[in-house]
Write a protein that binds this DNA or RNA. Structure first.
Lengths: 241, 241
DNA sequence: CCCAATTTGTTCGTATGTATC
DNA sequence: AGATACATACGAACAAATTGG
């Protein structure tokens, strides 16, 4: 296909992010197709995140660095028809999140610390409404997301980030996140405070251990809640008994 | 964008793989864009693997199931400009491959066993040429790939498969794979024979242990070789001393 | 075996939007 | 403000592929 051909040209020429694609490459006489077909190929590459295009003078098609966040969108359809279970996701999280914590241990800048503490602050106070509950759970996920941003291992960061996006999008999780869970919130907060301390101290092994415990707890909670929802199916609201 | 819009329509309507997209959806009057623009969107979705299109009567645009192998291609550009290191990859493999082994333990059909044994047979004999050496190393990777195909956890399967494809494509790895390595070959073979036995026996914990050992060995070997190549740079062929 | 119908794929001329000088 | 350079969008016509009679 034309898209692959253009990609080849980019890597062959050793073009770097920010470089502009020479006009000749996109001329109909170089590529053997018409503008319409060429544009289809460019759209594909743009969607893939490899190129961006600006209009106006000095504009054109430029090579871009693919951001992990964009790449995750590409996988949106992967599990569209056979959704993974919560257990599936946590099988990986239990293994990888501890490594993530270990990877950032002792390698955080002051500003990185502050943004992590900012995440925590969002769920320091007991939530009063269901919306606040939900927002806090998302903030917890953001804490982990923030960790990935400071991980020097790009694959580990990408994979953990991917798992987080799966959790965010799964409808089961979304409904679970709306339920109040004072116990987990408390222990989760506790874990993350301890984790931050361990990261600051640069204690790699302690980071791993704390995160492992956190993941095991989180999985247990999620599985319990999911099982409850299965027994009392659909969107039935909880009644105070 | 139009592509996202069409994707929404598919999931809203609950279309399944194999279903055909109604003609109305692709009519210029439904979507508010011209045919050319619409085709760009379709090309994107096709590249993403969500749809395929056939021409002729009874043809049209059909929903497809995204295969993991296709999805991996989407990520080709992710690490184009900051390639991960061997250590990065093995950080994940050491954690995930044991889980993969554990996941398939006791869950393999007879035919799955045979194909795994087929992989092993390819490197039972000492390689005589560099090409054979290389082919054997790829066959080792295929062994792991075959495992992913029988893993019921789709994310675990996908991630492990992704890591394998990274190893296959990295130029460092490719050159390392061409070097003779009788020792690792022997122990690798030994690991995989033991692993197959453990899988057959359904001994989950043993599977994990064997695979963990295998990964640690493999990483050590790869890192050693990579370090040697760095000291003696570029494609200089090895001399017998 | 060929013809006709259906549907995707390609092309080109033109028009519009947008950013720079 | 206006001219210029560039990407983006449109629509009609044409080509190719596939199926059934």
């Amino acid at each position: 296909m034309v898209a692959q051909q253009i990609r080849e040209m980019i890597v062959e020429a050793g073009l770097q992010p920010g470089d502009r694609l020479p006009n000749e490459w996109l001329a109909p006489e170089t590529v053997k197709v018409s503008r319409g077909t060429l544009r289809e190929a460019l759209k594909v590459l743009e969607f893939q995140g490899l190129i961006t295009s600006r209009s106006g003078p000095g504009g054109g098609v430029f090579v871009a660095r693919v951001e992990p966040a964009e790449a995750i969108r590409l996988l949106d359809n992967l599990f569209l028809f056979d959704q993974p279970s919560i257990a599936d996701i946590y099988t990986l999280r239990k293994q990888l999140e501890p490594e993530l914590a270990a990877a950032v241990a002792g390698n955080l800048t002051e500003s990185a610390f502050r943004s992590l503490q900012g995440c925590i602050r969002l769920y320091e106070d007991e939530p009063t409404t269901a919306e606040e509950e939900y927002a806090q759970r998302l903030a917890e996920l953001d804490f982990h997301e923030e960790l990935t941003r400071h991980c020097s291992n790009p694959i580990l960061a990408f994979t953990c980030s991917f798992l987080l996006s799966l959790l965010r999008d799964m409808t089961v999780c979304r409904s679970i996140y709306k339920e109040p869970n004072p116990a987990l919130r408390e222990t989760g907060l506790h874990y993350q405070v301890r984790l931050l301390r361990a990261i600051k101290a640069g204690d790699v092994e302690l980071c791993r251990m704390i995160m492992r415990g956190h993941m095991i707890e989180a999985e247990k909670y999620m599985l319990e809640r999911a099982a409850m929802r299965r027994r009392r199916p659909s969107g039935e609201p909880e009644e105070q008994t």
